[in-house]
């Protein structure tokens, strides 16, 4: 008995306050709130996007360079697509981060997968943002029948 007592781990006295604190920040709470707030906005943005691109007019058959140029000629769709890009990428990256944390049990695996995830996030968000802001609807030397009609001038 005496040997058992010396080896037993320290057990807190009954009713002593639990120390549940494992992190110092509220970032997981902010992430939880963000998933819900961005989810509501994305529902509107993505349903609008799907309606414009897959249902309206000839649906997917109408999509080509001229279609994109026509949409991005309007600041509404530039802002719409920019907001959709950022919100969806943050929402999706945070979701996949949660999945990695749940299923990748080894620390090294988690580090590798999350590094790849965050790298993809940066590349895709930077690329998409640059494309929206530097898009040229009338590139020089392109055949006129591939360009939007407003390029004629």
């Amino acid at each position: 008995m005496s040997q058992l007592a010396t080896q037993a781990p320290a057990v807190a006295a009954p009713r002593s306050p639990r120390s549940r604190r494992t992190t110092r920040t509220n970032y997981e709470l902010y992430g939880w709130v963000f998933m819900r707030a961005s989810g509501v906005v994305l529902l509107v943005l993505i349903f609008g996007h799907l309606f414009m691109n897959l249902i309206d007019g000839e649906g997917i058959n109408a999509i080509d360079f001229g279609f994109v140029a026509g949409k991005w000629a309007s600041p509404l769709w530039q802002v719409w697509d920019l907001l959709m890009l950022w919100l969806a990428m943050i929402h999706g990256t945070n979701g996949v981060r949660t999945i990695i944390n749940d299923y990748a049990e080894r620390t090294g695996t988690r580090v590798v997968l999350k590094s790849a995830l965050y790298l993809s996030f940066v590349v895709v968000v930077v690329l998409g943002t640059l494309v929206i802001f530097t898009f040229d609807p009338c590139p020089a030397g392109s055949p006129a029948d591939l360009l939007p009609s407003f390029c004629e001038a």
């Binding site: 080509d64 360079f65 001229g66 994109v68 140029a69 895709v124 690329l127 998409g128 640059l130 494309v131 530097t134 898009f135 040229d136 590139p139 392109s142 055949p143 591939l146 360009l147």
Partner: peptide, 10 residues
């Protein structure tokens, strides 16, 4: 990535 091709060429 596919949409980004609008920046390459029509």
């Amino acid at each position: 990535l596919d949409t980004s091709l609008v920046r390459v060429s029509p």
